[in-house]
């Protein structure tokens, strides 16, 4: 028992000692057990917690500025209990039918989008209806972009927004989707979309006389 230390003493070359001087003197232990090892179940829980969900939002007859608030909530992950500004927990949102958005009041005519090319005389003002005619995805995209705080994360968050003017969504994106965001207001049915027979057979309060001329 007396030569415990001499038994464990292994002569090392000078170079080796110098290279390992720090660990040699600090007497570091093998930390195999002390560092917590994650079990497979815990790893799966972590995977589930940070999984990015793909949401679908149908923009038909929706106010883009109200919708933007809901879309932002999902894009940034604000609806999650693990949310933190420095936590990358945002989801993907796929917006379809952006061509059929409904602006409130006379916004189509009054709302102006400003752009400047940075050259003298390069300023331009585009009305909402003009912009929508040029690119039917831009009004909702800009609504989401302007609805977020201007910071370094904003452009990265925007990458998770996928806007399509109609219901033709590429197959590989459609397969990712697993949730639908509920519409903010019900889509109204227009009279000219109802078949003439149905209109004809609908119960009426008064029957006009045969001679009555409808203008």
């Amino acid at each position: 028992m007396g030569n415990v230390s001499s038994k464990n003493f292994v002569p090392r070359s000078r170079k080796f000692v110098r290279r390992n001087q720090k660990s040699f003197f600090q007497h570091k232990h093998d930390r195999k057990y002390l560092t917590s090892i994650m079990s497979a179940v815990k790893r799966a829980q972590q995977w589930a917690t940070f999984a990015r969900t793909w949401h679908l939002f149908d923009a038909t007859w929706q106010n883009p500025f109200d919708s933007a608030q809901v879309i932002i909530k999902h894009l940034m992950g604000l609806h999650k209990p693990i949310y933190h500004p420095m936590n990358d927990c945002g989801d993907h949102v796929v917006v379809m039918n952006s061509r059929d958005i409904a602006l409130p009041g006379d916004e189509w005519r009054k709302r102006v989008y400003f752009h400047h090319t940075t050259y003298p005389g390069g300023a331009s003002w585009t009305l909402a209806w003009e912009l929508h005619n040029k690119n039917p995805t831009l009004v909702i995209k800009k609504a989401v972009y302007n609805g977020m705080d201007g910071n370094l994360q904003r452009r990265h968050t925007m990458q998770r927004l996928h806007v399509f003017p109609d219901d033709k969504i590429p197959e590989e994106i459609l397969k990712n989707i697993s949730n639908q965001i509920r519409y903010l207001r019900p889509v109204p049915t227009r009279l000219d979309h109802i078949s003439p027979e149905e209109v004809e057979n609908y119960p009426k309060i008064v029957d006009y006389p045969k001679q009555y001329i409808l203008r």
Binding site: W47, A48, A51, R52, T53, I177, S178
Partner: peptide
Amino acid sequence: TGVNTILAA
């Protein structure tokens, strides 16, 4: 979710 991404779950 995200079947076609590397973060599929």
